[in-house]
Design a protein around this nucleic acid. Structure first.
Length: 746
RNA sequence: GCGGGAUUAGCUCAGUUGGUAGAGCAGUGCUUUUACACAGCAAAGGUCGUAGGUUCAAGUCCUACAUCCCGCACCA
């Protein structure tokens, strides 16, 4: 008993993550433990075990993985590994997003910079090829990055939002919704991005706080009502002035039309009444520009007013006035203001706080323009043929808005932390039709063809000659919205029976709905809500049971990480420096769901030290115990107390993980390992192991072995590399990796 | 304007169903004793934003206020 076990030489020096990480990942890949089917084949997972499935929120193929992606991967990998070790049939599907606008504009920029060419110089086909090869290069690199973080995704099922199976799903989804009248084409005032030359959905607009001038003026000397505006240049497109129906000042003018000359431009202005007008604000009268304001468009619609488009797609004036024609809106504004002043029509100028609408991608100032676009109607009622959604019957008349509201309200989908449910409901209340068409080249082409006045929509092009396909592509979020089921073989894996019921087969049957959707709170609307929309509509079922929201990664001072701030942290750099496990722990410990996390050098260093601690504890146990017995029969009373304490904590940690309290589980493990196992159990064991009698020695040795082994197992989801590396050297049996070892607590 | 969050040790943050406050880093003292100096040990540090309330008991629940942050809307 006094003899020490031979220990592997490798333990004689400090833990060096770089020596182990790549080979450990290869062990996992080789043993196919990321595939649930292979795990069953090898006997690692019971055939009848319950499943646990997740999709990876596909990172944009625009480039390299950032700290935010690392945070996401780490959180998800921890959940996946935990469930896999619990014995579940565990599937995590990887993939990437073509990120239409973002990717296209990256390539456009590069093309301009390197070759001084515009996409039009190449032509649609050649340009798309460019983008595709850019995306493919990035995918190769990003795959390696995803691996480096330790992600245990099933690579055989890797998907891309723009590959052929997903393209089929997109066409199928579009055609189905078109047939149900939920997708329509219509002319409306939309968010036009003159910089990116495309429309955007309401959610793709960001607001920049700023100051603006509010001008109060009269259209002409003989016009009785003054109006105020921050955009004088749009006033050349006015067709009405709206006042509150109860406003005594203006009541007598309601219904009258004034033919006037507005600083050189003839206008026909009708005075209309509208309840939305606040008589207290400004002059109590609004100049209505139906073509260039969504609010005005509504007023115009209610009052049957004509609409005059005066600004074009390049944010330049399109009007019959020599000085103004072709001028940018801001220049035109100055000209109009100048003319108003000269004519003595300007009554007041004041500075006001006003938010500027900009594109979240290009940063371009949004210009509301009337355009013919494709929309998803969120309010139209349709008969849902088949429903697995609690409280929604087969054949019930519902709208998409009702479906997405219901799924969460009814608690079929839980959002963690719960406060985001309120944010979600808030968004739904204000939800309007989703503009899904984009005027860019890279993306899913809209599956609609035109010939003369005929329109054809289907999953395949019309057979006859002469049909012209719609040039627009779809909002990238349209294809992402199908992600939970397009990655599981939809539509092929969904049979529609004669009686209208749906029957799932294959992966779709086995893994949908997925269990958890883990993603950042910044894409709750963009993505989470749209997935719920698509899944409830197309499958009549929820896409996932739980939504786990994580926050943003910030620097030590709480600033967003960004290249322009120069505080960007490359996850691979720090992984190289501190070890991936340390990076994982630094991100996980103490970061409650939905909260932002700050990464600092200090925190990373602390968990690098922890890795070394694990390494050295293992070395001590191996060196100082002559048995690797984990048979509790040898445990005596004193050690039993320690064991009981550990079991209690292990149980707590398990519950924490089941309830998505990853931040607590990881902290408890850390604390137990360092401040109980290392600081107390090992310190106390020293004298016994040196001088104690044989039974005591055996009791202590067994205790240390049990606790170390179980700690390694339970640390694995958080710190997979070092734990697997140690396992491979010490405990491995029949080449069974730690990653599929069974969790010690039921 | 509507909604949400935060306010706990010098700094960054945890704190699960209410039961006499925890971690990392920084800082103090001691210790180079062969698992680990990428260390250990010991001590120090908080009236949990303010004011009320519920309760045997409140960092935790309720109300009001203050300060900060975020999301959404937006008025011409």
């Amino acid at each position: 008993m006094n003899e020490k076990r031979e220990i592997n030489e490798i333990f004689l020096k400090p833990y060096n993550a770089n020596e182990h990480e790549d080979s450990v990942y290869k062990i996992w890949e080789k043993s196919n433990i990321f595939s649930p089917e292979k795990c069953i084949e090898k006997g690692y997972t019971d055939k009848d075990a319950p499943k646990f499935s997740m999709v990876l929120p596909p990172p944009n193929v625009t480039g390299v993985l950032h700290m935010g992606s690392a945070f996401m991967l780490v959180t998800e990998d921890t959940l996946i590994r935990f469930n896999r070790m619990k014995g579940k049939k565990t599937l995590w599907i990887p993939g990437m997003d073509h990120a239409a606008i973002a990717t296209q504009s990256r390539v456009e920029k590069e093309l301009l910079k390197k070759e001084k060419k515009r996409k039009e110089d190449l032509g649609r086909e050649a340009f798309i090829e460019r983008v595709q090869s850019f995306a493919e290069d990035n995918r190769v690199r990003m795959r390696e990055q995803i691996k480096k973080i330790g992600s245990s995704v099933d690579w055989d099922r890797e998907a891309f939002t723009l590959d052929e199976p997903r393209a089929k799903a997109v066409r199928y989804a579009f055609a189905q919704m078109y047939k149900d009248g939920l997708i329509y084409r219509g002319e409306k005032v939309v968010n036009w991005d003159p910089k990116g030359q495309t429309t955007l959905s309401d959610d793709e607009i960001e607001y920049q706080e700023g100051k603006a001038k509010l001008y109060t003026f009269r259209y002409s000397k003989d016009f009785p009502i003054p109006v105020a505006t921050t955009r004088p240049e749009t006033k050349v497109g006015d067709t009405a002035v709206a006042v509150n129906p109860n406003d005594k000042r203006y009541k007598k003018y309601i219904g009258q039309t004034f033919e006037i000359n507005f600083v050189g431009i003839p206008l026909s202005i009708k005075v209309v009444s509208d309840r939305e007008i606040d008589p207290e604000f400004g002059t109590g009268a609004v100049g209505v520009t139906p073509a260039h304001s969504k609010v005005d468009e509504q007023i115009a619609k209610r009052n049957k007013l004509p609409s005059i488009k005066v600004i074009n797609e390049y944010a330049k004036m399109d009007i019959d006035d020599e000085e103004l024609r072709g001028k940018k809106t801001l220049q035109a504004r100055e000209i109009i203001v100048e003319r108003l002043k000269k004519a003595g029509l300007m009554e007041k100028e004041e500075e006001v706080e006003q938010n500027l609408s900009v594109s979240y991608r290009s940063g371009g100032t949004i210009e509301p323009l009337p355009k013919e676009q494709w929309f998803i109607d969120v309010n139209k009622k349709f008969k849902i043929p088949h429903s697995n959604i609690d409280g929604i019957e087969n054949g019930e008349l519902v709208s998409l808005k009702e479906l997405i509201l219901h799924a969460v309200k009814n608690k079929q989908i839980n959002i963690v932390p719960e406060r985001f449910e309120k944010v979600y409901f808030n968004w739904i209340e204000k939800l309007e039709d989703w503009c899904i068409s984009r005027q860019i080249w890279y993306g899913h082409r809209i599956p609609v063809w035109y010939k003369d006045k005929a329109v054809y929509c289907d999953t395949v092009p019309p057979k006859e000659e002469g049909w012209e396909q719609d040039p627009d592509t779809l909002d990238t979020w349209f294809s992402s919205a199908l992600w939970t089921f397009s990655t599981l073989g939809w539509p092929d894996n969904l049979k529609i029976n004669k009686d209208g019921t749906l029957e799932k087969t294959g992966d779709l049957l086995h893994y949908h709905p997925t269990d958890v959707l883990e993603t950042g709170y910044d894409i709750l609307f963009f993505w989470v809500a749209r997935m719920i929309l698509m899944s409830t509509y197309h499958l009549g079922e929820i896409p996932f049971k739980t939504v786990y929201m994580h926050g943003m990664v910030r620097d030590g001072e709480g600033r967003k990480l960004s290249k322009s701030l120069g505080n960007n942290i490359d996850p691979l750099d720090v992984a190289e420096k501190y070890g991936t496990d340390a990076v994982r722990m630094a991100l996980l410990v103490g970061t409650a769901p939905g909260n932002d996390t700050k990464v600092s050098e200090q925190k990373l260093k602390a968990y690098k030290h922890f890795s070394n601690k694990i390494w050295n504890v293992t070395r001590f146990v191996l060196e100082n115990t002559s048995t690797d017995s984990v048979d509790e029969i040898f445990i005596k009373e004193k050690e039993q107390k320690h064991l009981d304490e550990w079991k209690k904590i292990a149980k707590e940690i398990t519950t924490d993980l089941e309830k998505y309290r990853i931040h607590l589980a990881s902290e408890k493990l850390y604390n137990y390992f360092w401040h109980r196992l290392a600081d107390i159990l090992i310190e106390e064991s020293k004298s016994t192991l040196l001088n104690g009698d044989e039974d005591d020695k055996k009791s202590v040795a067994t205790l240390l072995n049990i606790i170390l082994k179980e700690n390694l197992i339970m640390l694995h989801p958080f710190m997979p590399f070092i734990t697997e590396a140690i396992w491979q050297i010490t405990y491995v049996e029949n080449k069974k990796p730690l990653a599929v070892e069974r969790w010690p607590i039921k």
